[in-house]
Design a protein around this nucleic acid. Structure first.
Lengths: 210, 210
DNA sequence: ATTCTTTCAGACCAAACTGGTCAATCTCAC
DNA sequence: GTGAGATTGACCAGTTTGGTCTGAAAGAAT
């Protein structure tokens, strides 16, 4: 299927992908509508099925695309020499933000993949799909958050995992509550302002833990 | 409509309500199916429409019920003499947990009300609905998190709001990531164990901020 | 035992929507 | 113009939708 997809104009392909990602992140597999997808993408019904064959194939293509994109993007944009966990987590948060600028709903979709065990294709299908693409999610997450990190920077070695959870959660909730509203308002969105706001939170935690 | 609802056997009414809450928290208004609701509740189609008239009326009843229930429950279970923000936030988290034991999906539903602007009934409808029930969400939240709270307990008065966000977010993420899995596993779920785990996080933050 | 009333079931309905097809167009290099 | 590939959208049969309605069941009262 990939070969025939190559021929598709890339701008149009991205339109379809984004539309499909949005639909599938909004609704579980069997409630997601191919009619909505083509409508949102501004293409005809026939075109979608010409390139993707069936709803299921589209969904599976999307899973692969999305997971590869997410992990590669983060993986490439991280500075692996950085040993400060605060900087690492900040870089991860920024990479997510940057990506959600070109693929707005990509992250929502990935999250929905891990949540809706019941309504997406069944779990074992999903997992073997990740295996098919050679991606071990668990392992990659551990790498993101711990590779080359210097834990001796913490002033107190007790409960390190608790502290890391707190830092990670703070950044995640910050992204949810504070930055998403900003992103919807204006298309070109203000990284600088975002960073300043984010640093308020990081500095408080740094002062507390380092 | 309330008068006719009174006549309905309360056990059966709760079955219907829980079933409807689950369906509406799983899917936005127009994808939620009354067929699923009656199936899950183990009643006939006719009964649902006999008591609730239409899908829309059911949905609106549910909104009122859920919001009232949520805020009243938290409101009543809080110790308003408590001036320690950590204790306050902990009490709120516990009240939520306790409630989701009798109305498992109630909280999910409330959250979906605030998220899915696009697909539930439109926002202004929803807001006027809260106004209809005499509930100002914003105001109540402020009260929950700040009434009678003693901010001088913080060792450093700077960035207090940032710190409160961090405490609140930590408890919320804790509930998402750590306690929901526990609750699904066994019906009777272990408050004691939950508290001990939760205290790990609270103590780290307390040591940092107080 | 009979009648009356209320509670409930589920077959039924038209309308909308589903994933998918396909003959007909449209586009564009030659 | 001609041929080939890209694209359309009316169309299909099947399912699902919110909602209705007839009448069975269950009491209650006589």
């Amino acid at each position: 299927m990939d070969d025939i997809l190559k021929k598709l104009d890339s701008e149009k392909r991205n339109r379809i992908i984004n539309s499909a990602i949005e639909e599938f992140s909004l609704y579980p597999y069997n409630k997601a509508s191919t009619n909505n997808i083509v409508k949102k993408a501004g293409i005809s019904k026939g075109l979608l099925f010409h390139y993707f064959g069936s709803k299921k194939e589209l969904y599976e293509y999307l899973c692969g695309f999305v997971v590869k994109k997410l992990f590669n993007e983060i993986n490439d944009s991280l500075n692996w020499d950085e040993s400060d966990i605060f900087e690492r987590i900040k870089e991860i948060a920024l990479a997510k933000l940057k990506m959600s600028h070109t693929y707005p709903k990509l992250f929502d979709f990935v999250i929905s993949l891990f949540k809706n065990e019941s309504n997406s294709l069944n779990v074992s299908d999903a997992i073997s799909l990740y295996e098919k693409y050679g991606i071990n999610v668990q392992e990659i997450f551990v790498k993101f958050y711990s590779y080359n990190i210097d834990y001796t920077l913490f002033k107190d070695q007790e409960n390190i995992n608790v502290k890391i959870d707190i830092i990670r959660w703070t950044l995640e909730k910050f992204a949810e509550e504070k930055s998403f509203p900003m992103m919807e308002a204006n298309v070109k969105f203000d990284y600088e302002k975002m960073l300043v706001l984010m640093d308020d939170y990081l500095n408080v935690l740094k002062k507390a833990f380092y």
